[in-house]
């Protein structure tokens, strides 16, 4: 699985900005994977992605959350 955005260790709103940028570059659709490290970032990045028409699922492993965005 290719990781498109590694936003671990960054604080708001940087993960959202990086996620939005990756989604805008993949505007045609597909899959974008984002690594983040808190539930707040999961919530914020999910909402930002949904605004752009993407659907989000996440997986938690220890302190790392893998957010998979699809359109």
């Amino acid at each position: 699985m290719a990781v498109n955005v590694d936003a671990r260790g960054l604080s708001c709103p940087q993960p959202v900005i990086l996620t939005r940028k990756a989604l805008q570059e993949a505007a045609g659709g597909g899959e974008v994977v984002v690594l983040i490290d808190s539930m707040t970032q999961v919530y914020n990045c999910t909402r930002a992605a949904e605004k752009l028409g993407w659907q989000a699922t996440y997986d938690e492993q220890g302190e790392v959350f893998t957010l998979t965005l699809r359109k």
């Binding site: 708001c12 709103p13 959202v16 900005i17 939005r20 707040t40 914020n44 909402r47 930002a48 605004k51």
Partner: peptide, 11 residues
């Protein structure tokens, strides 16, 4: 807000 650029303090 529409772009979801909220600071950490919001949460």
């Amino acid at each position: 807000a529409e772009q979801w650029l909220f600071p950490a303090g919001t949460a």
